[in-house]
């Protein structure tokens, strides 16, 4: 290979570095990334940080006020709930549960959805359109409703609700993937690759996938925020995770009983959900514009 390091200032960023450079330009997106990183650290290191066991009940400290209140104590930073459990520990475990499960679900449903969508987009004829129209009709129903129906069939429980949300997320991914793959397959560079003797597998990974990242990021962040909200919603309705497990939705519905006496019991889990969804959306938006700018200017 000839000498490429002729000038030291010469700098050719790889696609990944390029995306990061574009991403860094938006301060809000970077802020969102910090917030998301904070939550992800909680997911990974939760048990090491949490001061108490989330299920440990202290009979001497029911409904202790948060530390900033005059009657609060620094021992329980965010106070305790009606059973004397430390709210901070429960919140940390709750983020771990809600966000961790959502991430897992999104990865699984994206993999299934992209595989099905790619097959539907690259093939033609009856099979492809049957798959498409069947899933499209499912898209008319909100995911939460589908999830509730599936939970109704499978029965109440965290694992069942995970299956339900996972299945409910798939149709959208399939639909969008198929649309993009369809559009890409009409382009002239795909014809050029076909003339080079490219098989379908190669066409997908070389021609279509590099042009699909933007859509995947949009779809992934949307699916992640939907998954977070749905998991909490099912927990709140008592269809998903069951008390006493520290899940944000469950904590909300438990806190509702003492909402007048100790509003932080719902304010804190609620804002945790809000911040999580906000961070995911801000990062997703920033990533999408970074990917678009990388390929446009």
């Amino acid at each position: 290979m000839p000498n490429l390091d002729l000038y030291q200032e010469e700098f050719h960023p790889s696609p990944l570095v390029h995306t990061w450079l574009e991403f860094r330009k938006s301060h809000i997106a970077v802020l969102g990334l910090w917030l998301l990183a904070f939550f992800i650290v909680l997911v990974i290191l939760g048990p090491l940080i949490a001061p108490f066991d989330p299920l440990l009940q202290n009979p001497n400290a029911f409904l202790v006020q948060p530390a900033w209140d005059a009657s609060g104590s620094i021992r329980y930073l965010f106070g305790t709930d009606s059973l004397g459990r430390d709210l901070l520990s429960r919140l940390i475990y709750g983020c771990r549960m809600t966000l961790g499960i959502s991430l897992l679900l999104v990865v699984i449903s994206m993999l299934i959805g992209i595989a099905l969508g790619a097959i539907a987009g690259m093939t033609r004829g009856v099979r492809s359109s049957v798959l498409n129209h069947l899933l499209d009709s499912l898209m008319a129903v909100p995911t939460l409703l589908i999830a509730i129906v599936i939970v109704g069939i499978l029965g109440i429980g965290l694992v069942n609700s995970m299956w339900a949300i996972c299945l409910a997320l798939v149709p959208q991914v399939v639909h969008n993937t198929r649309e993009v793959v369809r559009a890409e397959m009409q382009k002239e560079y795909v014809l050029a690759s076909k003339l080079d003797g490219a098989k379908k597998f190669h066409l997908f990974f070389y021609c279509v996938l590099p042009n699909m990242y933007e859509m995947l990021v949009v779809q992934g962040t949307m699916a992640l925020s939907i998954a977070i909200l749905d998991i909490s919603a099912l927990g709140f309705l008592g269809l998903g995770a069951q008390p006493p497990s520290p899940e944000l939705g469950v904590m909300l519905s438990e806190g509702l009983r003492e909402a007048y006496k100790s509003p932080w019991l719902i304010a804190l889990p609620g804002s945790a959900i809000f911040l999580m969804v906000l961070a995911v959306n801000v990062v997703g938006d920033g990533l999408r514009s970074a990917l678009r700018n990388r390929l446009q200017n």
């Binding site: 382009k187 002239e188 560079y189 014809l191 050029a192 690759s193 070389y206 021609c207 996938l209 590099p210 042009n211 990242y213 390929l295």
Partner: peptide, 10 residues
């Protein structure tokens, strides 16, 4: 159209 025959993503 040389523009369309080149893949924009790579």
């Amino acid at each position: 159209h040389s523009n369309e025959s080149l893949n924009p993503g790579i």
